[in-house]
Computed example of a mutant assay.
Amino acid sequence: MSDVIIGSVLSALSTGLGALIILFMSDSVTHRWRDILLAFTAGIMMAASTMGLIPEALNNGGFLQLTIGIFLGVLTLTLLEKNIPHIDLQHSKKGIEFDEKAMLIISAITLHNIPEGLSVGVSYASSVEDTGNLIAFAIGLQNAPEGFLVALFLVNQKINKFKAFIIATLTGAIEIVTGLLGFYLTAYVDFLVPYGLSFAAGAMLFIVYKELIPESHGDGNERTATYSFIIGLLFMVLLIDIF
């Protein structure tokens, strides 16, 4: 129980860790570095899904449970994307621009963190030791650039840097609640474990293919982003192998 609390908290607070950078910046981040960071986290999440969550879901259930869980994860993210205002980054060499209002962006990011928190929680319910830690680490790495982008948007809206840092950090707090929810649902109802793991995999794969990879390939940095993706994937594979 203590592990899932610690993992959920650290994963959620990674949003604030990314946002912390904004306090030391005087200008916006270049698209090149933003794309490199996004592609790296995409590689991390890809490896965590395909080499961590999916094999574990198969071990706890079977292909049918895996398929159902993955599609439920994808469907959940699809519904969230269609019905919740989303943070769209306009590809431009001049910098990062946002169309939505500040409150809509904050609400969207907060709600999009729900399945990420569930991913951490159900991973800690797995029978394999350290699966939860690996997934919490992967989600945390994904949360860091997300927190930075939210804080950057708020600063561009003339909000005080410290306030932007606090708000961006709070957007990840919901992952603590949903992490505990995911853990309790799967830890005490055994047959839900493979569904929960594959749901988490589906949610993460959706984020990788629909969000992170396209966002990292829209500004002429495709080759660099591809290298970064591969490095991120190998980095996570190394962690899986070590643990």
Rank of each mutant, 00 (worst) to 15 (best):
K161W: 04
V128M: 11
F183S: 00
I114T: 03
F24Y: 12
T110E: 00
Q90P: 05
E100K: 14
N60V: 09
K82D: 10
M25T: 14
L234W: 04
L77R: 15
L66T: 12
A151S: 11
V155E: 06
S26V: 10
S49Y: 05
G117A: 01
N133G: 14
N160Y: 00
I230V: 15
G95V: 02
D241R: 14
R223F: 14
A102S: 14
M204D: 00
A225M: 01
L181V: 14
V155S: 03
V120P: 05
F63W: 15
T76P: 02
Q65I: 03
L17Y: 04
E116M: 01
I21H: 05
M46W: 12
I139D: 06
K101T: 10
S92V: 02
T171W: 00
I242T: 13
S49D: 02
S8P: 07
S11E: 00
A168F: 03
I240L: 13
L75G: 12
V74Q: 01
A42E: 03
L234E: 06
G61N: 07
N221R: 04
D99H: 13
Y209W: 12
L170F: 13
L141C: 11
P115N: 08
F63L: 14
S198F: 05
S228C: 09
L180F: 05
F243C: 09
L185D: 04
V74T: 08
L80V: 06
F40R: 04
L79I: 13
Y188W: 11
S26H: 12
L38Q: 00
I242R: 14
S8R: 02
L192Y: 07
L141R: 06
A48R: 09
G179T: 08
D190R: 13
N221I: 02
I68F: 07
D190H: 13
D219Y: 05
A39P: 08
L111F: 14
R34D: 11
L152I: 04
I207F: 01
V29R: 10
F191V: 13
